[in-house]
Design a protein around this nucleic acid. Structure first.
Length: 345
DNA sequence: AAACGCCGCAACCGCCGAGGT
DNA sequence: AACCTCGGCGGTTGCGGCGTT
């Protein structure tokens, strides 16, 4: 069945809207309402197709549109909703008053997505991905300092209690001493020139996350480094005064991490759907039993209210701070006030 | 100052589902 | 059931602004 074009393209203008066209469209809609978009441009005297008019109105001219930079709360909401809804921009926009799906989509693609990639987090699944991780930026921050104590600040003291991770840390440190690599220089650059290091830290390829790793780096160790990366960011915020119980690795990220995109993006996912379709395997604590509802329902005594950390950075706006803040979103818990049932309907 | 490349965003395109005939 | 229209959605494109060389 052939589909008729939305309008006769002949003689219709395309491209950016002029202020005059905007004025005509706004005046017409204020007087008559949008009505039928197909006939609107003709009635209003615009040389545009109805689709173009609708888009211009909904994305730009609507009086209730909020413009300007996204706040941290908005960004937080976007990330949380995206972890549940996937690329359902209109559904996400419905929960962000004054923001359009187009604006949110653009913001995701140009800002949030890139930031997550830098942090080694898959922007589709919201799961840590070793092949996305910028190891150099993580290691540089620690290895430019000689002391193992700095490694502990990177990995967290809890992580260093783990012999495997301690082994990894000392391996890296000893490597550094052996080969005298100038670590403030980009590690990835060094990999290109130093065979010894190349042998230890291979450039990571897609799908290598669960593949057998090079000698000296068991997959478990790498997993722990990944965990340490995410939690390392998180700990920075703790240091800034946000009290939180780190011993509870409950996070929606972990529950949704392994979901296939089809499930992820189903138009009407229910809690049961997500539970049923989730083939998630916890990447870090394989013995832990995961239950979606247990994650969704947060006890009133939860030490991590959804917005508890917002005030920490509320008045700052650097990318680094957002990145640090952002990483904490992957340990979020859903507060009681968050209507997840309503969200999933 | 000019050339170039990158980035962000507005707008377009193609597809889909709902609803009417 | 088949066909058609319409609104809506998500992916993609292309232009303009800005920074760098």
């Amino acid at each position: 069945m052939g589909r008729a074009p939305c309008c006769d393209k002949d003689g219709l203008k395309k491209g950016p809207w002029t202020p005059e066209e905007d004025l005509i469209l706004v005046n017409f809609i204020q007087l008559h309402g949008p009505g039928n978009w197909r006939t609107l441009p003709k009635n209003a005297g615009l040389q545009r197709c109805g689709k173009s008019c609708r888009l211009r109105w909904t994305n730009y001219l609507r009086p209730d549109i909020k413009r300007g930079r996204f706040s941290f709360e908005e960004e937080e909401t976007i990330i949380q909703l995206h972890s549940i809804l996937g690329n359902k921009w209109s559904a996400i926009a419905a929960r962000l008053p004054g923001r359009t799906d187009n604006e949110i989509k653009n913001y995701w693609n140009t800002h949030i997505r890139k930031r997550l990639l830098r942090m080694g987090i898959d922007p589709v699944t919201h799961a840590p991905r070793l092949d996305l991780l910028d190891l150099s930026s993580i290691l540089n921050s620690s290895l430019c300092n000689q002391s193992i104590l700095h490694m502990s600040s990177l990995l967290g003291t809890q992580a260093l209690m783990n012999p495997e991770l301690l082994k990894l840390a000392t391996t890296i440190l000893s490597l550094k001493q052996e080969i005298q690599v100038p670590f403030p220089k980009d590690l990835q650059d060094n990999q290109l020139f130093n065979p010894a290091l190349q042998n230890q830290v291979q450039p990571l390829q897609p799908n290598q996350y669960q593949a057998p790793l090079q000698e000296g780096f068991s997959s478990e160790m790498i997993n722990q480094l990944m965990q340490a990366n995410v939690e390392g960011f998180y700990r920075k915020e703790v240091a800034l005064g946000d009290s939180q119980d780190n011993s509870t690795p409950t996070s929606l990220r972990e529950n949704l991490a392994g979901q296939p995109k089809d499930t992820y993006c189903s138009s009407n996912p229910t809690v049961a759907d997500i539970q049923e379709n989730s083939n998630f395997q916890p990447p870090f604590n394989s013995n832990q039993n995961f239950n979606f509802e247990s994650v969704v329902s947060t006890p009133t005594s939860s030490p991590t209210p959804l917005n508890s950390s917002s005030s920490t950075f509320i008045n700052s706006s650097t990318e680094d701070e957002r990145e640090s803040y952002c990483s904490n979103l992957f340990k979020f818990e859903i507060p009681e006030s968050f209507d997840i049932d309503g969200l999933l309907m």
